[in-house]
Design a protein around this nucleic acid. Sequence first.
DNA 1: CCCACAACGTCAATATATTGACGTAGACTA
DNA 2: TAGTCTACGTCAATATATTGACGTTGTGGG
Lengths: 179, 179
Amino acid sequence: MGAATSPSVRKRSRGTPSVPFDDDNAARLALANRVFFRLHQCANLLHKTGSSALEEEGLTTQQWAVLAALSRPEAAGGMTVNELARYLMISRQNLSGVLQRMERNGHLAGGADPRDGRARLITMTPPGRELWQQRALPKIAAYYGRAVEGMSLEDLTRALHYLLTLLDNMTALDAPEDG
Amino acid sequence: MGAATSPSVRKRSRGTPSVPFDDDNAARLALANRVFFRLHQCANLLHKTGSSALEEEGLTTQQWAVLAALSRPEAAGGMTVNELARYLMISRQNLSGVLQRMERNGHLAGGADPRDGRARLITMTPPGRELWQQRALPKIAAYYGRAVEGMSLEDLTRALHYLLTLLDNMTALDAPEDG
DNA sequence: CCCACAACGTCAATATATTGACGTAGACTA
DNA sequence: TAGTCTACGTCAATATATTGACGTTGTGGG
């Protein structure tokens, strides 16, 4: 990532006037390079400023994502580690550590799943729910408000669409051996 | 992050017909929530698939960002740790570890800066430059090509613009105590 | 009923990321 | 020249992130 200069990729689409394709391809690669460079910086800065915004609550952006997931009506009965990991698109192994820290802090509790002895049902504790609703959510709203300043609803919609496109493409890249 | 439901933010812009502002604000927050959720997933997947694409070379996306930075003509004489950290927008402490691993692998070398005894000048070793130009760059081009499939030049330009806007906003959030 | 097989969660190793602390080195004041 | 102040790089502690390995549990074919 970062400032990769485009390598000398020589491809010729048959019948095309020869020059436009290469120019277009080079421009696409240069732009892709800049997009991914900034994407990476954005994610780092999001984590940094987001965690800083909830510093008093001791919540990182990952932990707030977990609380957000568990606060949904669909998750009223709790979620298993695997369900949470799939929902958040992180590995079970990573989530396992995050959950341990949040249980240690008293925000979460994990009980046995009555329907599956292998699974653990993760739920918010009353203090965790209180923290989320009373203290975290207002700060998150303020944070989001400042973070998307200057962007219209249409801008946000388009940005979301682009991110979903990139996610789709990279998901395909992630599992090439079964296609 | 993730699926935060909008908290009951009640603000009234004076003189306005009362409803439009709240609706608009709620929609913005909901969209911002989804954008940041996907942004985070994108960054994770970028790191995962990018590092996987350069697995044979033993390069992670962060290491390829370092090589990309050092391969620029402007960095012909090498870069100090601090210059690299500012360019990549990561902390010196983090970069220090990355550079140690890359020196251990023989991709980089760090010498004393003749103009400043405190600084270390980081440069690519000949094997590092060889690896970057001959093996990494073609794979990166292929990776970028697949990652931005279905996006036009205009799409990419707009996506880049949105990321820069978010970066600006979050940079402002990062240093609120001196404004 | 038992045995292979897959799924669930965790442990271990490694690579990023952050902030805080600290020793070394240059710069500026007295 | 000495003293302060800042900048540079690294060490330490902690939180994410990944893959690989492994014990436990549920599910299937015999």
